[in-house]
Nucleic acid binder design. Structure first.
Length: 414
DNA sequence: TTATAGTCAATAGC
DNA sequence: GCTATTGACTATAA
């Protein structure tokens, strides 16, 4: 069961991983590797903290999806500052969208928003209304938000959404409901019932993936129901024409497309992205938010532009010569990877020799991870101490913490 | 000067 | 044979 931790974070069974707590665990395995180290080693490099604390919001999956038409509620976020976000990025923004986002509660002493409905008329005007008749919390804490990136519509306490233009509506990327509560009102999360999103409309789902920079003419999105030219050439967008791409959604669509058409990662990575299979795998499983990207935007844009083509053309591009692929995607050849064809330092003298990848021993790794849990950024001095104790190169220790810090941030969800 | 982003590519794992 | 993981490299940002 989930429960509130004393520091305001959530303890979730989905999140917990006892095996990753060698600093404090009593497992025999942990004892084994610690006993193999010099006495008080962990205390030396990993001084105990008074209080461990996670700063990241916790996420859980929807509990059930009963209705066959139910659309997965993509994200329920409980943050440590007394707020709860329900959001769905996949729901009924189709041509005749209307739907309902609701949850049930199974305890009387937690009263808040019970239901939110949204609908859109033929003029693409959207209305949103909610039933918070059971809400005994201070209404000041209730907020609705139709998000669009980069800046959301914020309607504060108003339940009725003002008229939106067609482009406004199409730029909406998700509905977010935020229920805040004071310390006294804080519910036990475990007591909140089931969540579901249902769609009333049977029309095709539509999700806008990209928001071009204003006032540039809007481009055709992937899966658009709008007509496209036969060669698909008008489907491509340039980097300077795009202000936002929903990378998570894009990667999900790419993964589905590859699965449906049995496209190997190696093929797609090398042909469409000019990148390696491993890089594509990582991108698909751990997409970075668009706004956090720097030079990496180009790679996602190549995925986007490929997906924006008609199916027959998507398949044809995979068979093209590389120069034709660039042209088909409306993009110039990407800058070669900066470390392409690189060999390890020791291999530079013999570039034909296949290098072997160094692998930490389990003791080395578990120790490094134990220290990381306490200190994500050990000083150079500390790294040298660790390297000496574990009989490692300082560079390897440095690389471990560099990789660990960055990979911790986008570990695959669930 | 140091940290980070983007990536390669070996290889583990299915 | 395929995807996922991960130690390492390097241009660039801070």
């Amino acid at each position: 069961m989930m429960s509130w931790a004393t520091d305001g974070t959530i303890n979730s069974p989905i999140q917990s991983n006892e095996s990753q707590q060698p600093c404090t665990s009593n497992s025999s395995r942990k004892r084994k590797f610690v006993e193999d180290l010099p006495e008080n080693f962990l205390d030396t490099v990993c001084p105990p903290k008074s209080k461990a604390r996670s700063e990241d919001p916790q996420q859980i999956s929807p509990m059930t999806m009963e209705n066959q038409k139910a659309i997965p509620l993509r994200e329920i976020t409980f943050s440590g500052n007394n707020s709860m976000h329900f959001s769905s990025s996949e729901h009924a923004f189709g041509r005749e969208p209307s739907g309902q986002l609701s949850y049930t509660e199974d305890r009387d002493d937690y009263q808040c928003l019970k239901e939110m409905k949204f609908s859109m008329n033929s003029q693409n005007n959207m209305s949103l209304f909610g039933d918070d008749s059971n809400n005994q919390a201070n209404d000041d804490y209730l907020n609705f938000e139709l998000s669009r990136t980069p800046s959301p519509f914020d309607f504060g306490d108003d339940l009725m959404i003002p008229e939106l233009s067609s482009d406004d509506v199409r730029a909406i990327s998700q509905v977010v409901l935020t229920q805040n509560w004071s310390e006294e009102q804080k519910p036990n999360i475990a007591d909140i019932g089931e969540f579901e999103v249902t769609q009333k409309s049977t029309s095709r789902l539509r999700k806008e993936l990209v928001q071009p920079s204003s006032p540039v003419k809007r481009s055709k999105p992937p899966h658009s129901v709008a007509a496209q030219s036969s060669d698909g050439s008008n489907a491509s967008v340039k980097l300077d024409e795009v202000s936002y791409i929903d990378t998570k959604n894009l990667c999900e669509r790419i993964a589905i497309e590859m699965k449906d058409h049995k496209i190997a990662q190696k093929t797609f990575a090398e042909k469409i992205l000019c990148r390696s299979q491993g890089t594509l795998s990582d991108l698909l499983n751990n997409p970075k938010p668009w706004d956090n990207l720097k030079t990496g935007k180009t790679t996602y844009l190549r995925m986007f532009n490929w997906l924006a083509q008609p199916l027959s053309r998507r398949m044809a591009i995979l068979e093209m010569d590389i120069d034709d692929v660039h042209e088909a995607l409306g993009m110039s050849a990407p800058v070669p990877a900066r470390n392409a064809s690189k060999r390890s330092k020791s291999m530079k003298s013999d570039p034909d020799t296949k290098r072997t990848r160094f692998v930490f021993t389990s003791i080395q790794k578990e120790t490094l991870e134990a220290i990381f849990k306490e200190t994500e950024r050990p000083s150079r001095e500390m790294q040298e101490t660790i390297a000496n104790h574990l009989k490692l190169d300082v560079e390897s220790v440095y690389n471990f913490y560099m990789n660990a810090r960055r990979r911790k941030l986008h570990k695959k969800k669930n």
